[in-house]
Amino acid sequence: MKLDLILRITAKLMLPFMLMFAFYVQFHADYGPGGGFQAGIIAAAMVILYGIIFGLPAAQKVVPARLAEFMVPLGVVIFAGVGAIAMLMGGEFLNYSVLLSDSVRGQLIGILLVEIGVLVTVSGTMIAIFYTFAGRGRG
């Protein structure tokens, strides 16, 4: 573990930029390519890289396994919840136009929330799967 100094420092330098890029892909999806799915993968890749370089316990200090597993259903709940709220506010399921008085702004908010739901589920799933794989010793 002491020998991979270059790896550790390079990884440390790269990690914040990876998270930045994930959020860029997430919130810039209105204008460029990307969205919740890609951003979720990139965010999960950041945690996985951290786990590979610094060991599983260090990664689980950043994102506890419990949290990752909790994120898996949470994203679906966010997504479906936005749809249900739209229904409660008098529109159809997943019709974001009714979320705010201005229908275009309502759409923007709806898309943003839904993309966050996708991000949460995808990154949670990837991190949880990585943890369970990496947590098993050589059989």
Binding site: A29, D30, Y31, G32, P33, G35, G36, F37, G75, V76, F79, A80, G83, F93, L94, Y96, V104, R105, Q107, L108, G110, I111, V114, E115, G117, V118, T121, V122
Partner: peptide
């Protein structure tokens, strides 16, 4: 929708059901 990227607006607004299914 006010979203210039049509891919995003189709994926998460017009085809919201599909994306919910994917999630």
């Amino acid at each position: 929708t006010g979203v210039p990227n049509v891919v995003t607006s189709v994926l998460s607004s017009y085809r919201g059901y599909d994306t919910l299914g994917e999630t």
